[in-house]
Design a protein around this nucleic acid. Structure first.
Lengths: 134, 134
DNA sequence: CAGTATCCACTATGATACTG
DNA sequence: CAGTATCATAGTGGATACTG
């Protein structure tokens, strides 16, 4: 997960693109391999148990799932509820704050869905030229 | 930069949160350390030369700046123009496609600015508890 | 069930030096 | 000026085995 950086370099008036800025911090947090997938799953389905999540995000290791969930929980985006039964049962769900993040995430998703073809096309053009030039 | 993954596992109807989905690809691309900063700078100022960019994104190495710019260029988000003068002059600018990405990026930025305090507060609470529990 | 603890590989990033 | 090449390293992600 993102290393926790000091905000020493930050400017007083937030420049969205300066180092140490909120959006960079956000990207550092959700730009990892599993965060948005977890956020997405929880957003779709509501409360979800650890193993359920692991199965839905097939491919994730227990270590990474735990790590991702802990980070999201730490940031107040996900709530973790432990039911003291045996065997223990733990449920994860989006917090209200986590819910609000779905909006900008959706904007990003929509952009990518709408422009994916263009990006892919650009890649092919670029790679073709690269092939010519070595 | 993101490893280029096969899309073999993708479902036919795009699930925004499934692996290999457009939004994941997008996050893989712009979730790195410099892409959104470069996008942001170019969005703010229009055409910009290599060294100008390097100075504005103070802290970036030439290698990373080149790598980031190449990736963005490959994806059709940034245009690279070489002026065959001596010494050579290269200008970078957002393509129309790159411009459209500023909208969802702005949504993300606004979210982070608006909710940063909550996230930070949540972290402190979490870390305080972690201290208690070991 | 829901983790934790280890060890390992790869990747991303960076410092530095060199070049057309 | 605008890179490229090389070397070094930290951090990310993963496989596996163990535990309350």
């Amino acid at each position: 997960m993102a290393t926790v950086k000091s905000v020493t370099e930050a400017t007083s008036s937030w420049d969205p693109y300066a180092r140490g800025c909120p959006s960079r911090d956000l990207l550092d947090r959700i730009g990892d391999k599993w965060s948005i997938l977890v956020l997405g799953e929880l957003g779709k389905q509501g409360p979800c148990r650890f193993t359920q999540l692991r199965n839905r995000l097939s491919g994730v290791s227990e270590k990474m799932l735990t790590q991702t969930l802990r980070a999201l929980e730490r940031d107040g985006l996900v709530r973790r509820t432990v039911y003291p039964v045996v065997p223990v049962r733990v449920e994860y769900e989006l917090t209200p704050l986590g819910q609000t993040l779905r909006v900008p995430l959706k904007a990003l998703t929509e952009w990518s869905v709408r422009h994916l073809a263009e990006v892919l096309a650009a890649r092919e053009v670029y790679d073709a030229h690269a092939g010519n030039k070595g």
